[in-house]
Design a protein around this nucleic acid. Structure first.
Length: 860
RNA sequence: GGGUGGUUAGCUCAGUGGUAGAGCGUCUCGUUUACACCGAGAAUGUCGGGGGUUCGAAACCCUCACCGCCCA
């Protein structure tokens, strides 16, 4: 191998990352081949919003997906990781509307066609910034297959599936109470509504007069204008005499019935509630049960209408005050509680208080598809990782409400339904045209309706494409548990419907959220948001990726702090320097690895540890245990390799006779870089190509653990060397002996350990030779004597030994207690008993040794 | 209100029956020919409280307290 290759003297991620990503793209490593004979491994990237920028959650999500993709690619799979973006209906429309409003206009001034054109224009110019940012992170996605939920193919798929679902009776139109955002002027699905406890008011109002009076409590006084009943619980004896009678609604004097309904909670307020079927979900259901009329008293802007009262034209919140004032003037306010904390729905996009509104919308009948989705998981066809999160999935799919899919927006897939002059309704498929003179439904579909098809329409569905045949179903979906309900369930439903019951992924791997260093949620208002780009600039993409992967325990949130990213950068630097040092000392991958028998114990030990690490890390990554996998790699690289192997080998490298070790070290680095490449792709690529001269780790083979390298005997031996070295270091430290000072001494060892005396002496800075000992320490059955020319710190040494004595005595005592316990002796398994016996023997010997050493110390 | 997760070192978290761990932080010492983005050594825990099961419990069961998340 050429000796001219070398690593730069300092590790600078900024210099290597971008060129390496370009190299990979140019080589086409990430482009999947549907005609390949290799087994497929596929992932679809959860499409970020076209309006989005890369936040730390994306960085985590993509790091985990990239790890899997890169590992599988190295393992010989035909890997497809498909990227793309979501058109994000409301979010995108809001962005462009804001732009337009800056010029003093509204989208209505432009008209629908012109507006949609503007949105496309915005998308081309400013949309998708996030895709460029993904490249910084190193995501090995197949850019040749990038998709957009509004592109031609996906639009065709949307219309196709709408028609099929309609014909299967799974899509219907109905007048229902839906969540309405009076600012966005559109319907929202349940999941687009966020509930929070707000400070409102609870007002008790007397309806009717004298014996016929009944008091109701409400948080929304203005809706009384639309009341069509008062309801009580049928078992509530306080009101049984009033059921069936009528009462007049104050202010508007409408005569309404008093009805009995099981739904009413006798413990809430007075036990009597006003019923406004057109403006409350529960009231609507009561209305259906009792055939009550629905009186709509709020328009799309949430202003009062149709009441023929002074309140017409008032905004809902102004109307609430005005209604309460008017009632107070009439002496009908019985009680008021302010503030009254209660749950209020808000639009997830603009935070406006959502208004339940009776309107005609399109719905998906979810029950059959939700059942199929639940069954797919219950039967084991789809696995949820970690399993502990499966109950959350079931809770949702088992209790799902029909899904409102129409949105009163302009940006999105227009509902493919046309209406005839006489109220005819027809769904127009992708290759069909509507009859002349008919008009199309003006609404668009919920964004999740199209993104729910992401797992199959991105592969070309409804065409029978080669991609679909090769890569569907996908291998695993990696996403945060926070969108389990939003997106994952919808993908499950739409896919099982469209793909003849074949679910979209074999495994759903859920990760948690990234939080700040104190475990608090990141938010702009808290000012604790971590920008991944900023930290990649500062510490490199590998450091960010390693930190995120190292924190990714299955299904749980992780805290993140700048210091920890810095720590990962330090780790990268450590690897870089170790590799430089190894190469300076001749580490190489040229030629065959020497036979194990010919190696020294230190080489045998590192090979053994390497094989163990490779097999454990591989296993952990296959089980999505990123945190534990990273922990093992970290400690193998830093502790085993850098702190012990390199230190123990320095002496033999310096002595010049280390050809076998050079080859072993080259092998260990080669394999370690392969193993770490999925998590830290850039630095490993740079170091590996420099060391081996190979083309790229992206297309290199995944490391294989070698069972023949596992060597417990060498592990035990090196363990003893470590004990000895640590003991001498403690001694030196306690004695205050300067690191730079080489002390004369000798190591009295027998057997194989004796062969490593010079390696040990090198590490602990001892000069071996014949001496007159004035101090000694003992470990692992070996005595190390020093010539300190008589001047040792007796007090410090006594303290050290006494401390050891206390530890040994305690350990001995616990062992004795166990062995004297008859229950333990009778019931504990043999191996445990043997272990405790050995502990007793060792501690007994230690106590003897330390006591002797103490006695030998000069008296103060 | 329903569901669900948690409480382990100063902080953030691993640890599903056999002598309590990691990273960061802290203290002491140190530029020894890879690395101060470093090295060596050290300190720090009645594993939330109380009961129970077991020879043995951070882990299993019961109970209480306190945090969090999802849904209503």
């Amino acid at each position: 191998m050429s000796s001219s290759r070398e690593l730069a003297s300092t590790f600078s991620p900024q210099e290597i990352e971008a060129p390496l990503y370009q190299k990979w793209i140019k080589a086409g490593y990430f482009t999947a081949d549907a005609a390949s004979s290799k087994e497929a491994f596929s992932i679809v990237l959860p499409p970020p919003n076209v309006t989005g920028v890369l936040h730390i959650g994306h960085a985590l999500d993509q790091t985990l997906q990239d790890c899997l993709s890169r590992m599988k690619r190295m393992q010989g799979f035909e890997v497809l990781w498909l990227p793309g973006m979501d058109h994000a209906g409301i979010a995108t429309q809001n962005v462009v509307e804001k732009q337009i409003s800056a010029t003093g206009k509204s989208r209505h001034d432009l008209g629908r066609e012109e507006f949609v054109k503007k949105v496309w224009q915005w998308k081309e110019e400013s949309g998708g910034a996030i895709l460029e940012q993904m490249k910084r992170l190193g995501s090995s996605v197949d850019w040749s297959r990038e998709r957009f939920t509004m592109d031609e193919g996906m639009s065709k798929a949307v219309v196709t599936i709408f028609k099929r679902m309609y014909e299967a009776g799974l899509i219907y139109r109905a007048e229902r109470i839906i969540n309405w955002c009076p600012r966005c002027l559109t319907a929202l699905s349940d999941i687009e509504v966020e509930h929070s406890d707000d400070a409102g008011e609870l007002v008790s109002i007397r309806y009717g007069e004298g014996d016929n009076a009944i008091i109701v409590a409400t948080t929304r006084a203005e809706t009384m204008l639309g009341d069509t009943a008062v309801a009580v619980n049928p078992d509530d004896e306080r009101y049984s005499h009033m059921i069936g009678k009528t009462v007049k609604v104050p202010l508007i004097n409408r005569e309404i019935p008093i009805i009995a309904d099981q739904h009413v909670d006798p413990a809430f307020g007075t036990g009597a509630v006003k019923v406004t079927p057109a403006h409350d979900v529960n009231d609507f259901e009561i209305g259906v049960r009792h055939s009550l009329p629905n009186i709509v008293i709020l328009d799309a802007d949430a202003k009062v209408v149709n009441t023929n009262s002074a309140f017409d034209g008032l905004d809902r919140f102004d109307a609430r005050k005005a209604v309460v004032e008017a009632l107070r003037a009439e002496g009908r306010i019985v009680a008021e509680k302010r503030p009254y904390m209660h749950a209020v729905g808000h639009c997830s996009r603009c935070d406006t208080t959502v208004e339940p509104r009776l309107s005609k919308q399109w719905f998906v009948k979810v029950e059959p598809m939700a059942k199929a989705s639940a069954d797919a998981v219950r039967s084991g066809a789809v696995k949820i990782e970690p399993e502990a999160l499966a109950p959350r999935y079931f809770e949702w799919v088992d209790n799902m409400h029909d899904w409102c899919i129409s949105r009163q927006l302009w940006w999105g897939h227009r509902i493919p339904v046309w209406y005839g002059p006489n109220g005819e309704v027809q769904v127009v498929g992708p290759d069909e045209t509507a009859p002349a003179g008919w008009t199309q439904d003006s609404d668009v579909l919920d964004t999740w309706f199209s993104s729910g098809q992401w797992a199959f329409s991105t592969f070309g569905w409804p065409e029978k494409s080669a991609d679909l045949a090769k890569f569907y179903p996908t291998s695993v979906l990696v996403t945060g548990y926070d969108i389990l309900f939003f997106w994952v369930v919808r993908m499950m439903m739409m896919s099982t419907f469209a793909m003849d019951g074949v679910p979209p992924f074999k495994t759903i791997m859920l990760h948690g959220l990234v939080r700040d260093q104190f475990g608090k949620k990141m938010s702009k208002s808290r000012g604790n948001v971590i920008d991944p780009i900023e930290f990649m600039d500062k510490y490199g993409a590998d450091a960010l990726r390693f930190t995120l992967a190292r924190g990714a325990n299955p299904g749980t949130d992780q805290a993140l702090a700048e210091d920890w990213i810095g720590g990962s950068r330090n780790f990268a630097t450590k690897l870089w320097n170790a590799t430089r040092f190894a190469m300076m000392n001749g580490a190489t991958v040229a030629g065959d690895l020497p036979t194990v028998d010919s190696l020294n114990a230190i080489d045998k030990w590192i090979l053994s540890r390497l094989s163990e690490t490779v097999s454990e890390v591989t296993d952990l990554l296959e089980r999505y245990e990123y945190a534990r996998a990273c922990e093992l790699m970290y400690h193998f690289a830093w502790d085993d390799l850098c702190d012990w192997y390199l230190e123990l080998s320095k002496e033999s490298f310096a002595s010049g006779a280390a050809d076998a070790s050079k080859r072993v070290l080259g092998h260990v680095l080669d394999q370690l870089f392969r193993l770490m490449h999925p998590v830290m792709p850039f630095i490993t690529e740079q170091m590996w190509t420099t060391l081996t001269g190979g083309e790229s780790l992206v297309v290199a083979q995944w490391p294989v653990a070698n069972a023949a390298h596992i060597d417990k005997k060498s592990e035990a031996l090196v363990g003893q060397l470590q004990e000895i070295i640590t003991e001498v270091r403690r001694f030196r430290n306690d004695q205050g002996i300067k690191t730079s000072l080489k002390i004369p001494g000798r190591i009295i060892a027998t057997g194989e350990i004796a062969q490593y005396s010079s390696a040990v002496a090198f590490v602990v800075r001892m000069e071996l030779g014949e001496i007159t000992p004035s101090a000694k320490c003992e470990a692992a059955g070996v005595t190390i004597e020093f010539d300190l020319t008589g001047s040792i710190d007796v007090v410090a040494e006594r303290a050290r030994l006494e401390k050891d004595l206390v530890t040994a005595s305690k350990d001995k005592q616990t062992a004795e207690v166990k062995l004297n316990n008859q229950g333990f002796m009778a019931k504990a398994p043999d191996n445990v008993v043997v272990e405790i016996r050995e502990r007793l023997e060792k501690t007994t010997a230690d106590i003897e040794r330390i006591t002797a050493a103490l006695a030998a110390l000069p008296q103060p």
